[in-house]
């Protein structure tokens, strides 16, 4: 039986193995080791949830703790990428993009094009997203669509430990700026992960379940919920096909379209707010390119158009869940 580790361990292992393999890989972020200048232990935290724990002592000089100056250090990671390093910078929560977004979307994202194809910016920005921690409006958002909107950025949203490791290694080796979205609720998810080094390519959706009745496209944490819903729906005789795009930029359009060509029915599940989202993007794609195959209106299961609330009861209502997915799939399946 293959070894099982958590999503969090898979990310740590990917960083560790790539740092061992390639001396140009460095890691930086707030408290990524922890304890700089303080009287107690170094590597006191290994990141706010311990994801980078242990790297500091294993790779001396290559795990840099930063001041709370996201513009400066995220920008510095980008600059270092222009000068031969492969930095993996951590933007603790993606909600903090607001204080450093210029360096990402006007600088890193634009270099290649603005400079006539001469620049390579192999930087990775790891960042946590998503609701579920009762962390309220500024620590729970699901913002990958904002980054996906920007040409020049690659955007990765792994839904399980295997993909997390392979996609992170791919991100580090990729020569474009990559935003790597880690769902905080998934950190404890266990799954089979090879000890060996491997990659998962960008722009290749995973088909997690095959079915002829309804296509469900789900991202990140929503993939598990879609699987739960599909299992229940199968008992009612509705066979779902589940597609996890894994990267939103590039997006594996072909796999989504092929599936909808087969099923004619689509439900998109996205933890983000619905407007200008991956849900609306994928729905738009299917309407443009597979209109003839559609047998029912497309359903989106998303958070509502409100910020993430604090109170547990409200947050639980806010996030899509298996029951909501089941209802949407049933509506789509029964539409005549």
């Amino acid at each position: 039986m293959a070894r099982k580790i958590t999503y969090q361990q898979a990310i740590n292992e990917a960083l560790d193995q790539e740092m061992s393999r390639d001396p140009s890989v460095i890691v930086m972020g707030e408290d990524n080791a922890g304890g700089e200048g303080s009287p107690g232990e170094m590597d006191a935290w290994g990141g706010v949830l311990g994801v980078t724990k242990g790297l500091y002592h294993k790779h001396p000089g290559r795990v840099l703790d930063t001041p709370i100056s996201e513009s400066a250090f995220i920008g510095a990671a980008i600059g270092a990428a222009c000068n031969g390093l492969r930095p993996v910078a951590e933007l603790m929560f993606v909600d903090f993009m607001g204080v450093c977004f210029d360096q990402i979307f006007n600088q890193a994202a634009k270099f290649r094009y603005m400079f006539g194809g001469k620049a390579e910016t192999p930087v990775v920005i790891r960042t946590m997203y998503g609701a579920g921690f009762r962390a309220a409006a500024q620590h729970s958002q699901c913002l990958y669509s904002l980054f996906t909107h920007v040409p020049g950025l690659k955007v990765v949203v792994p839904s399980n430990p295997y993909d997390a490791k392979g996609l992170l290694i791919e991100s580090i080796r990729d020569n474009d700026p990559v935003i790597f979205f880690e769902n905080k609720v998934l950190y404890t998810m266990e799954g089979e992960v090879p000890e060996e080094i491997y990659t998962v390519p960008f722009g290749e959706a995973a088909i997690l379940r095959e079915g002829d009745d309804v296509t469900i496209v789900a991202l990140g944490r929503m993939v598990n919920m879609a699987q739960e819903a599909a299992e229940a729906l199968q008992k009612d005789g509705i066979h779902c096909e589940i597609i996890d795009p894994r990267t939103t930029s590039p997006l594996d359009e072909e796999t989504i379209l092929e599936s909808v060509e087969k099923t004619g029915r689509l439900v998109v599940v996205d933890e983000a707010n619905p407007r200008c989202s991956m849900a609306s993007d994928i729905a738009g794609l299917v309407v443009r390119k597979a209109f003839g195959a559609l047998k029912a209106p497309i359903e989106q299961v998303t958070a509502p158009h409100v910020p993430p609330p604090f109170s547990d009861v409200l947050e639980d209502l806010y996030v899509p869940n298996a029951a909501k997915i089941e209802r949407a799939v049933t509506r789509v399946a029964e539409y005549r």
Partner: peptide, 16 residues
Amino acid sequence: TRQLIDDMLKYKRLDG
């Protein structure tokens, strides 16, 4: 099966 193909891809994507 899909799983057979996925497993083969997983193997093929190991370094080396």
